[in-house]
């Protein structure tokens, strides 16, 4: 099945450039993982609902160097009706040297480097579906923006301990959410139990929450924390901590870097970023059991 066919009645109408009919004149200014984003072309209702949903990430005023995204109308009849029962929602993705395109439920999107990153979202969703659509788009945008900035967006549980953040990475079902709740119970803060951002600083990498990730919301959602460790996570009969080899860590992170890891035009850049991340972090493998005490082990070992 070729690009877009799963979602679009006429995949050949897929926009090849960033233009169309805006929904309205309202805009939203967001701070996502250290980058300013200006989302233009919204209705007042769309902008207000997103500002409420992304409270704490709304930067209020547009930054001069903001990544600009425009939101355009698309006819509902351009999209296929999809029976989502028992269906695993995965976006269609395609890339070229200077562009990326995405197709999903009730939206398509395009990112372009001209040379700075810009984006556009075309959607048939005006109201209740819109927040989900915009979040899907922003995930892709943030992933590419971070990769271009030398960092990465990673499927992970981001836990703050003593002012530093560690990312616990694992395949789906490894226990990221469970581990996050255990960590909260043990007095740690959670950036996100699903997606976290890493971006380079002059003193290594820092971890940041993103506004559209995970069910656990804590006061740690804003601000940046120095990265302490990358930890491969799995559940086990008891808490046990082991070393993780750098090569295995890079491979692990690559498998958990959504969108960009499927992009042949940006794979090399991503791998370079991940190698830098791994080089400056403590690397561990953690098996955890469903009982307290994991952070006494983690805290001691990781800080050692």
């Amino acid at each position: 099945m070729s690009f877009g066919e799963r979602f679009l009645i006429h995949p050949d109408l897929f926009p090849a450039r960033l233009s169309g009919e805006s929904w309205g004149d309202a805009r939203l200014n967001l701070e996502i993982a250290g980058t300013s984003h200006a989302i233009e072309g919204l209705t007042d209702g769309q902008a207000a609902s997103m500002a409420e949903r992304f409270a704490g990430f709304d930067s209020g005023v547009p930054a001069k160097d903001a990544v600009r995204s425009r939101v355009f109308r698309m006819a509902p009849e351009e999209f296929r009706a999809i029976d989502t029962r028992g269906w695993n929602y995965d976006l269609d993705q395609d890339a070229g040297e200077t562009w990326v395109r995405i197709a999903g439920m009730r939206f398509v999107a395009r990112l372009a480097w001209r040379p700075d990153l810009e984006g556009a979202l075309w959607t048939a969703a005006s109201d209740v579906d819109f927040p989900g659509v915009l979040e899907n788009y922003l995930r892709v945008l943030a992933a590419y923006g971070l990769a271009a900035a030398g960092g990465a967006l990673l499927h992970s549980a981001g836990i703050v301990d003593d002012g530093e953040a560690s990312l616990f990475v694992g395949v789906s079902g490894a226990g990221k959410s469970t581990f996050s709740r255990l960590s909260l119970d043990e007095g740690r803060q959670v950036l996100s139990d699903d997606l976290n951002a890493l971006r380079p600083t002059t003193a290594g990498f820092e971890a940041l929450a993103v506004p559209f990730a995970g069910d656990i919301r804590s006061e740690a959602r804003t601000g940046a924390r120095p990265l302490r460790a990358i930890v491969r996570l799995r559940q086990g009969p008891e808490h046990r901590l082991a070393e993780l080899r750098p090569a295995a860590a890079v491979a692990l992170l690559a498998s958990c870097a959504p969108y960009v890891n499927r992009d042949p035009f940006r794979a090399e850049r991503l791998m370079t970023n991940l190698a830098s991340i791994v080089a400056g972090a403590e690397l561990r493998e953690l098996a955890f059991a469903l009982r307290p005490g994991v952070w006494s082990l983690m805290g001691r070992e990781v800080r050692a």
């Binding site: 050949d12 109408l13 897929f14 926009p15 090849a16 450039r17 960033l18 233009s19 169309g20 009919e21 805006s22 004149d25 355009f72 109308r73 075309w122």
Partner: peptide, 21 residues
């Protein structure tokens, strides 16, 4: 519309034009 499924090098459209459609 200025939406297009091709991106012709010499297209004359002013893609910077703003306004209410």
């Amino acid at each position: 519309t200025y939406r297009c499924n091709l991106d012709c090098v010499f297209c004359y459209n002013d893609l910077g034009l703003r306004g209410t459609p």
